[in-house]
């Protein structure tokens, strides 16, 4: 098993508040690892540390063998990242968004055009490619963002709440795309979600995060078995391990962020 992401005792505080309290996990090539937890659990903070946007306070994290703190430039070469918030430029067309990214990723000439066109086709965006992105639906925007993030075929793809604010059909579309990326490229994928069903469907392994702590890790089947009830749903699993389903509702900041995004995508 080829380990692509290694995280050991990662910690991060904002002032007095400790958002991530010593989290550890690994992700192998071809594996979809899900960070599951309510708003405010620390999922985005972990992703931002692994994508070199935020320096960890302590602990160690390597991506493709490179340290996220000391070899940040190397890490950026081998990752793709789709942030939680909407991250494409509405003023540009879908094609322009892809073109600018491809150039910045160092792709050239025929190769660049081929990858752009293939990915637009794969994401079923070729007909919309010459339209400004502000006319796209939420699902189309997400597909474009994923297309941008995999232009250089990264070893790891980070997706922060990739389906938040999407309707069920668009959500399924994203799931299928992730499954294909994983199978065909053996890409390692880290996704965060607060939807139990999503974690169950898409992820090979799940880490449940609550108040900055990794409560438990395992395959969906393992986690369900641990509750002692083989017919358990992921909702039951979550309640079993955190004990405070209602309480784990996140804070104002988290809620505001999620609402904000849903509205933009709506």
């Amino acid at each position: 098993m080829e380990v692509i992401v290694e995280v050991e005792q990662l910690k991060k505080s904002f002032g007095k508040h400790t958002a991530v309290k010593g989290v550890s996990f690994n992700i192998a090539a071809g594996e979809v690892f899900g960070l599951l937890g309510p708003n405010g659990a620390g999922k985005t903070t972990i992703v931002r540390m692994l994508t070199t946007l935020l320096p960890p306070d302590s602990g160690r994290a390597t991506v493709c063998g490179y340290d996220v703190r000391r070899q940040a430039a190397r890490v950026r070469q081998c990752i793709g990242y789709v942030p939680q918030a909407l991250s494409v430029d509405g003023a540009l067309t879908g094609y322009e968004n892809m073109m600018i990214f491809a150039k910045l990723l160092g792709l050239k000439g025929k190769e660049r055009n081929k990858r752009i066109n293939d990915l637009l086709q794969f994401m079923q965006l070729e007909d919309a490619a010459s339209r400004q992105v502000c006319t796209y639906s939420g699902g189309m925007v997400r597909r474009l963002e994923i297309a941008q993030a995999v232009l250089h075929y990264p070893r790891v793809l980070f997706l922060d709440e990739p389906t938040v604010g999407l309707d069920p059909v668009a959500r399924k579309g994203v799931w299928e795309i992730l499954a294909e990326l994983r199978q065909i490229y053996r890409m390692a994928i880290l996704l965060t979600t607060h939807y139990m069903e999503e974690a169950d469907t898409v992820c090979n392994r799940i880490g449940i995060l609550n108040h900055g702590e990794m409560v438990v890790k395992g395959t969906p089947a393992e986690l369900k078995a641990m509750t002692g009830n083989p017919g358990a749903s992921m909702d039951d699993v979550f309640t079993y391990f955190t004990g405070n389903y209602l309480d784990a509702g996140g804070d104002f900041r988290g809620i505001r962020q999620v609402r904000h995004i849903s509205r933009r995508l709506g």
């Binding site: 946007l53 430039a73 990242y81 991250s87 430029d89 910045l104």
Partner: peptide
């Protein structure tokens, strides 16, 4: 606020 900047900062630029 949009997330565009985060994406650029995580790229090899």
């Amino acid at each position: 606020d949009m997330g565009i900047l985060q994406k650029f900062l995580a790229m090899p630029i």
